[in-house]
Amino acid sequence: MGEISDSLGLALQLIMALDADLREIVLRSLGVSCAAVLLASAIALPLGAALAVSRFPGHRAVVILLNALMGLPPVVVGLVVYLLLSRVGPLGDWGLLFTPTAMVIAQTILVTPIICALTRQSVEYLWGEYSEQLRSLGAGRVSIVLTLLWEGRFSLLTAILAGFGRAVAEVGAVLIVGGNIAHHTRVMTTTIALETARGDLQLALALGIVLICVVLAINAGAFMTREYAQRSGS
C-alpha cells in the first residue's frame, strides 16, 4: 500500500514539475490523435451525411456494416496496418512503419467508422425534419449535405469528440504500428503499458492521471456543447 501511495506522490510531482519526458509523451499522444481525428472527420462527415440523405440498393447493409465497424478491435487494425506498411507489404516502400505517421493512419482507420456512423445517425434525424423544406427551397444534393452538416454541428462535435476519446485512449493499434520507441513513437497508452510491465509505476501513474483528465475534459466539453446548443435554441 505504501509503495502505491509513494508512486502516486512521485507521479503528482512529475506532473507539477512538467517533467520533460512526460510532456513530450503527452504532446505526441495529443498530436497523433488530433491528426487522426482531423483526417477521419474530413472523410467521415461528408460520407456519413451523404449516406443519411441517399437511398440505394444495399443501403441498409452499408449502414449495418458501418455500425459494426464502430467496434473494430484496435489490435486487428494495428495488425492490418502493420502488414500493409511492413517492408514486404504493398506500401512498404513508403518506409512508414514505426513512425508517428503510421500511428495516425491506424487511428484514422479506427476512428473514421465511429464519426461516420454517428454523423449518419444525427444527419438522418435532421433530414426527416428538413427534407421537404430544403427541397421546397430548391437545394441541390451538395448544398443539402453541407446544410445538414452545419445544422447538426453541435451533435457532430460530440461525435468528433467521441472519436478523439477512442483514439487517445486505445493502445493496441499504436503499439503494433508505432513500436513504442522512446522519443519517437512513444505515446501515453503505450508508455503506461511498458512502464507498468517494467515496474516503474510513477511515470505510468502520472500518464494515467493525465489521460483520465484528458478524457474527462473531452466529455465535459461534449456535455457543455450540448447544453449551450439547447440553451441558445440552436
Binding site: 425534419e129 423544406q133 421546397s136 452545419w150 445544422e151 440552436s234
Partner: peptide
C-alpha cells in the same frame, strides 16, 4: 415558394 404548416427554420 411554400411555407409548410410547421415552419422549418435553420439553426
Amino acid at each position: 415558394s411554400m411555407v409548410l404548416q410547421r415552419p422549418v427554420l435553420l439553426r
